[in-house]
Computed example of a mutant assay.
Amino acid sequence: MARIGFLGLGIMGRAMAANLIKAGFEVTVWNRSAEKCAPLVAQGAKQGATPREVAASCDFTIAMLADPAAARETVFGAEGVLAGIGEGRGYIDMSTVDDATAREIAAAIAGHGGRFLEAPVSGTKKPAEEGTLVILAAGDESLYEEAGAAFDKLGKKRVFLGEVGQGARMKLVVNMIMGSMMVALSEGLALGLKGNLDGAQILDVIEAGAMACPMFKGKGPMLLQDDATTSFPLKHMQKDLRLALALSEELGQSLQAASAANEVFKRANIAGHGDDDIAAVYRVVK
């Protein structure tokens, strides 16, 4: 089995790395806060001291990081991936970043003799734990094939989208729609409750019709119960909306609903809900 590095052990990363360990892969983990490695080491992982060390010792290394800044630092830092890549080893960035960041990292990895694949995922904490993510890959197709067995332990579906940047674009489109839907659900429930409708009945009616979807089924009760237990941090959704709007500027596409949704998420972030779940957007809507 492949020797796999895993960088970034946040809500998503630690669940994903755990699934690879359970599947029998030899996994070496690293996290900026080193103490987060301990539970995975207890499950059988090795611990790397730096991204450079991990990349140099593994067949391919996966990163699951918070944002473009973290993605760049992990690659370009003094003890970053770039210093350890080479000899055909692979680097797979599963973080949600903009397409320009993905292309910048891809060029640097290739320039040092490595192979690069972007593979952002659609899904939050529970799908990460269950291994039912949707993996949106683009870049080096040989690395995509080599990582296939690992991807199949992380997700229920994987697609190859071609050249680097297309994975990032697909992920931003998906999350832009998700963010807009969360605002719409929040506004619908807020309006209905003020109109003396029963919140559970609103959700039942939605579930019975054309708008039924797993997200509404999962998040709807959280809104009604004021439960913002984090599976997808609100600040990360706002970041993704911001990146989608930047892409719209680049491509000349108007995004009126997404622009409005971004302002709602921005208000929630400013109000101190950034580390709460995206369900906390309801707190500023109502």
Rank of each mutant, 00 (worst) to 15 (best):
G5P: 02
L7A: 05
L7R: 03
L7W: 03
L7Y: 07
L9R: 02
G10D: 15
I11E: 09
M12S: 10
A15P: 08
A17Q: 09
I21A: 00
E26G: 08
V27A: 02
T28G: 05
T28E: 09
R32W: 13
S33R: 13
A34E: 11
K36F: 11
C37Y: 09
C37I: 06
A38D: 12
A38S: 14
L40A: 01
L40I: 04
Q43V: 11
G44I: 02
G44S: 13
G44E: 10
G44N: 04
G44Y: 10
Q47L: 04
Q47W: 07
Q47T: 03
E53Q: 15
V54Y: 01
A55H: 02
A56N: 12
F60E: 06
L65N: 08
A69R: 15
A69M: 08
A70I: 06
A71P: 05
A71K: 04
A71T: 12
F76M: 07
A78G: 11
V81P: 15
G84I: 02
I85Y: 14
I85G: 08
G86R: 06
G86A: 14
G86Q: 11
G88V: 05
R89G: 13
Y91L: 00
S95G: 03
D99P: 15
A102Q: 06
R103P: 04
A106M: 06
A106G: 13
A107Y: 13
A107F: 12
I109A: 05
I109G: 00
R115Y: 10
F116H: 09
L117F: 05
P120E: 11
P120Y: 07
K125A: 09
